[in-house]
Design a protein around this nucleic acid. Structure first.
Length: 285
DNA sequence: ATGGCCATCGCGGATGGA
């Protein structure tokens, strides 16, 4: 089973690229960020024709998130419950997994009352604009709310994936220019502390569970020939709960869509789990 | 370097992104 996340920076512009990418990369689930469209414009039919169901949470001009999946989404929640927010940044849902799939056996056998479904949170974290700005304060408040909510979600849903555009680097290895970016947005101590606090709830950065090429990034500025020079940052992440760690077999960044005509400035990040076919109810063969 | 690029809204140029 493969899952992916991709900030597509306008689904209106990028829908053909997303469909092309899904045809070449038939993941079980794809989380999208920055739809930049209202729900009435969401192309459910185009995804259905490609074999995918979709749930979305859009808004005009900015933000907007969606989950595209082969299996139906259950218990869909939009944004962070209890956190008053005008911006469409988070969508989460549960997906049925067959018995004996990508779940920690100790969890399964010892706690039969726990939710065995996969819980997926797709999120577009605030940018923050500039340290000290109002938008930066909003980013920190949003991160506080997210962490409190994810803590309780982990209790309810042991098999949790939190993925999307985090707009935060873990450390200097996640940026092409650590000195130039020091204390700049995406690289401040406050943001990185928040990211570590999220991990400390019982999550793992899937990227770092596996060997990766040096200077692996998920975003490159449109300016300065940044992609060609690999002047990028790793700000799109897949965090998985500890109960899923043993089932993860690979995590990688697919740079090929960044080479498209009119690309998104972000590129997809994928994770693979063994022995799990999300939503497949029939035996193979 | 008071920047470069891109999407949106809307038809010029501001705003936001990262």
């Amino acid at each position: 089973m493969k899952l992916a996340t991709w900030n597509i920076n306008s689904l209106t512009v990028r829908l053909p690229q997303v469909l092309d990418w899904l045809a070449a990369n038939p993941v079980e689930l794809l989380a999208l960020q920055e739809l930049k469209m209202t729900d009435d414009k969401f192309p459910h039919a185009a995804f259905a024709a490609a074999g995918y169901q979709s749930v979305c949470f859009g808004q005009k001009t900015y933000n907007g998130v969606a989950l595209i999946s082969k299996a139906p989404a259950q218990d869909v929640v939009r944004n962070i419950p209890g956190f008053d927010d005008d911006l469409a940044r988070v969508i989460s849902a549960s997906y049925q997994m067959p018995d004996g799939s990508a779940t920690d056996s100790s969890i399964n056998s010892a706690s039969s009352n726990l939710d065995k479904r996969l819980r997926v949170i797709g999120a577009y974290f605030p940018n923050g604009q500039e340290p000290g700005s109002d938008k930066f304060e909003y980013k920190l408040a949003w991160l506080d709310a997210l962490r409190a909510w994810v803590r309780s979600e982990l209790v309810q849903h042991p098999h949790l994936v939190l993925m999307g555009d985090y707009n935060i680097t873990f450390d200097d290895a996640d940026t092409w220019d650590p000195e130039g970016m020091r204390d700049q947005i995406h690289c401040t101590d406050e943001e990185r502390y928040q990211l570590q606090a999220l991990v400390a709830l019982g999550l793992a950065d899937a990227h770092r569970l596996f060997a990766q090429p040096p200077k692996s990034y998920s975003w490159w500025d449109y300016r300065d020939l940044a992609f060609r020079r690999n002047h990028g940052m790793r700000i799109d992440h897949i965090l998985i709960s500890n109960a899923l760690k043993s089932a993860a077999t690979a995590c990688w960044i697919d740079k090929t869509p960044r080479k498209n005509e009119r690309p998104s400035d972000h590129t997809p990040v994928l994770i693979e789990f063994a022995n799990c076919n999300l939503g497949r109810t029939h035996a193979p063969g």
